[in-house]
Design a protein around this nucleic acid. Structure first.
Lengths: 402, 402
DNA sequence: CTACTTTCTAAGCATCCCTTATTAAAGGAA
DNA sequence: TTCCTTTAATAAGGGATGCTTAGAAAGTAG
């Protein structure tokens, strides 16, 4: 069957999920208000919240009654139990690995940064390093190890969330590393892998600009361009389960070579890696040392300082990205597209051109119904996305469950 | 709330829908088999089928017991009641309007063709003509008028299914005609509009190659190229509710002008209208008379006969279409893409090139996980799609209901 | 301290599904 | 033909859920 058969247990699960979601979104909320928002009867809400309290997921908050001169019995506010579960979010990027411990409310408890290039290390060492970072994180926080329920990892490149394998990642080079499996064996915890754009999409949906938005996309622009698509309450993974191949849509005919072997992929024109190649050609190696990393930021600085060649480079990239966005707009037409760029300065420089190019290449009605948002890639949000990946299992939307 | 609250009634609705779907897909099926397929208990199936019989939607079939030397009490086969409801599907295209009467099982009862160019007529006349065709259809079939539950209409161009308006249709020219509203007023029946690709997607999902496929796309190539996307058990309409603007994704930089005012839209390169312009340039007006309509078919004939210019024209178009498909593959990566072409000959000629171009421009993993199917645009299937549009309301999937 | 207001919970009812037991409707063998 | 076996379909009983109504709890206002 494509869809689950309904029985009383599923019914309960569904309503329980709704109640938990309502509490999560509101932070603190009374039973009455839950009842109003969910349209469930008061008794049902009481029964469900009772069970959730029993399970230790929520608790009554005994702070101020918050009664704004209201008469009658004061409402008891309910909220998530902060330490009902902890999750570790790991962000792996070119030159920096971050491990962040997140509590059940999605808030950061502790964070450890590891400024190391993992690409040069063998798999064993990589896993060692990540494990150390996580240990440090746990130690710093003082959280009991048994309360940690899982690990969510974000890795650039092609990631298969089913097998826990990472392909063609700029971080690991050509190697296929079953990093998920390795870490799971080490820690005995469930591990989930995703590409960064998917994690950010999850984070935006839970905590960010896309709360209760039914369809949106998150475009991450750093080493490469990548897209996470959120449609109808879940990540869109497509038939291959790998998610959209945004970086490999074709956006020109200049013959730029992509690492995938084809020509004029978006990633051949756009992103840190592509820009480095172009900059080397056009600006010479003067740039090379200055912009060992943070090339995009450096370029933005040049452009703002009035450097014509830098401006042209950026302009060209922004246009290509705009064309890429236009394909999303025309084909999927989500309510929002959030473009996340690592360097704030760079984001500000390209935003107008990207927007204009997107408009120039989109069908007008569709462009107008898709909101384009630019913002800086937030490390914190990123980690919360990785955590949400695991927390989702605990919250467990019943219609997605196996 | 984004999702419905669960209560016993919804539970029943969901299971009822599953039972009805199972019966629809199987034509004739016993209670036991329904129980096995849906995983519902026998008693529940009995209760639900009992209700459905009461409502007149299904009935016991008293033909052969179909007992393959099986002992025991024979199974009673259940099936849809053929005349539980009738629906009229109307297909409007450039030079031909077809009205088809469809029964509750999705089978054609009667069909009327109107070889008339509606573009030249005022709105009043258009509605008159369609009404006449429908009347003829009803009369021919002898079906009681009161059993007809609605009208589903397919119109090329931009269609807003909410307002029943048709924009920028090649059929009506620049006019905005509220054809849905007009016909609803005339007939007193509910009317739904869709673009052809959406109707075909619906039809493929109900009756065709995409039964129980969770995600697929249907690309229709006739006057223009158009895409209907089916994701997660429903048509993907996007934020604008108009569906994908496949014809307006950009596929080149040759500067071909599209009717939307932009350059190098897919529709500027591909489809009957674009080919006519190109053919006029390259083949001269010798072609003009021969190919008043059915230009694509005519071209295919030329190409098969060895005409180099015709082959080049077709080749170029096929490549552009392949690029278009690659965007679908890379971004959405559906399990199937069904390419429906009006002329069988033309379809056969372009298929290899389209496939090759799609492959050359897609990320390999994604290409390999999307099945590409070419087939001829089936007038019958088309009409059944229009009918399914209405029947869907009667079947009423509970999770899509308001 | 009492009356009032509002929140929350308990009791009773209706619906649904499931498991088990019973009836119905055939075929096969004596 | 009659009785037994086998399978299908229905009926009865149990468990879970949600809803409505009524009552207990916990404050404020006077």
């Amino acid at each position: 069957m494509a869809v689950k058969i309904a029985d009383p247990l599923l019914m309960r699960e569904i309503n329980k999920y709704h109640v938990l979601e309502t509490i999560r979104c509101h932070g603190q909320i009374s039973r009455v208000e839950i009842s109003e928002r969910t349209l469930l009867s008061g008794t049902t809400v009481s029964a469900i919240t009772g069970a959730l309290i029993e399970e230790g997921l929520i608790e009554a908050i005994h702070t101020t009654p918050t009664n704004e001169t209201l008469r009658g019995r004061p409402r008891v506010l309910l909220g998530l139990v902060r330490d009902a579960a902890f999750v570790i979010g790991v962000r792996i990027s070119q030159a920096l690995t971050t491990a962040t411990l997140i509590d059940f409310r999605g808030e950061t408890v502790a964070s450890v940064q590891l400024p190391v290039r993992l690409a040069r290390q063998p798999a064993e060492v990589i896993v060692d390093l990540i494990e150390d970072a996580m240990e440090e994180c746990i130690g710093k926080s003082g959280v009991d190890r048994s309360r940690i329920k899982g690990i969510g990892i974000g890795i650039p490149g092609i990631v298969d969330p089913r097998s826990g394998r990472s392909y063609a990642s700029s971080v690991f080079g050509e190697r296929e590393i079953p990093i998920g499996t390795l870490l799971a064996e080490r820690t005995g915890l469930p591990v989930k892998l995703e590409k960064p754009a998917n994690l950010l999409a999850l984070a935006e949906s839970w905590f960010g600009y896309a709360q209760s938005v039914r369809s949106f996309g998150v475009v991450v622009l750093d080493q490469t361009a990548s897209l996470g698509l959120w449609l109808e309450d879940d990540l869109q993974r497509g038939s291959s389960k790998l998610g959209p191949a945004f970086g490999h849509i074709k956006v020109g005919n200049e013959g730029m070579v992509c690492e995938c072997g084809q020509h004029d992929c978006l990633n051949a024109h756009v992103g840190d890696a592509a820009m480095r190649r172009q900059a080397r050609q056009e600006l010479g190696e003067a740039l090379d040392a200055a912009a060992s990393y943070d090339l995009l930021d450096h370029l933005a600085g040049l452009a703002q300082a009035g450097d014509a060649r830098g401006q042209r480079l950026i302009q060209r990239q922004a246009e290509k990205l705009g064309v890429g966005l236009s394909h999303i707009i025309n084909l999927v037409n989500p309510a929002k597209i959030i473009v996340a760029v690592e360097s704030q300065r760079y984001g500000e420089v390209i935003a107008p051109t990207v927007r204009a190019a997107a408009q120039a290449n989109s069908f007008l009605t569709h462009f107008n119904s898709t909101e384009l948002i630019f913002h800086t890639l937030d490390d914190q949000l990123w980690a919360r996305g990785a955590a949400a990946l695991m927390l989702r299992d605990i919250y467990s939307a019943p219609w997605n469950a196996a």
